[in-house]
């Protein structure tokens, strides 16, 4: 089975590094973008299976990235998980309306993040539905 590719869009190098370590070990191929413009270019170049998107970005924030992804026939097929430090209300609703499949608040519990990723990729063993109301706390 070939490795699934995940594009991580975050301007914080620490977030990119920690996600890199975490996802590599779970057998995912990881590529990165640090700003809004680069994220679209990287998405075109790599055609990832999934995008993990931060909201606060230089050169076009996460919402405009999401809009541009969803406006493109091919890129709109890639599921997007928004992971942000911003307040849940109203960002969660905005993200979902713009076409993200989940909104997770930083810091995201590792087990939960992996479960949402598996769910988004349609992988086995992802029985957990994408329900995150109170649950984004680290335990």
């Amino acid at each position: 089975m070939s490795q699934k590719k995940i594009l991580i869009v975050d301007d914080d190098p620490e977030v990119r590094l920690s996600l890199h370590v975490r996802l590599k070990v779970n057998n995912y191929d990881v590529v990165f973008a640090g700003d809004g413009v680069a994220s679209i270019a990287e998405a075109r170049k790599h055609m990832p299976d999934l995008i993990i998107l931060d909201l606060g970005l230089p050169a076009g924030d996460g919402f405009s990235v999401l809009e541009r992804l969803k406006a493109n026939v091919i890129l709109s097929m890639i599921p997007v998980i928004v992971v942000s430090g911003r307040v849940r209300i109203p960002n969660r609703e905005w993200a979902l309306k713009a076409g993200a499949i989940a909104f997770l608040q930083k810091p995201v519990d590792n087990a939960r993040l992996l479960s949402v990723i598996r769910h988004a990729l349609g992988e086995k063993g992802s029985s957990e539905p994408v329900v995150y109301e109170l649950g984004d706390t680290v335990n």
């Binding site: 914080d12 620490e14 920690s18 996600l19 606060g56 430090g85 911003r86 930083k106 810091p107």
Partner: peptide, 15 residues
């Protein structure tokens, strides 16, 4: 506030 407090916390948690 939400963003600025959560970012360092995310790093501490992740690493």
């Amino acid at each position: 506030v939400s963003h600025e407090l959560r970012s360092p916390l995310t790093s501490i948690y992740s690493f």
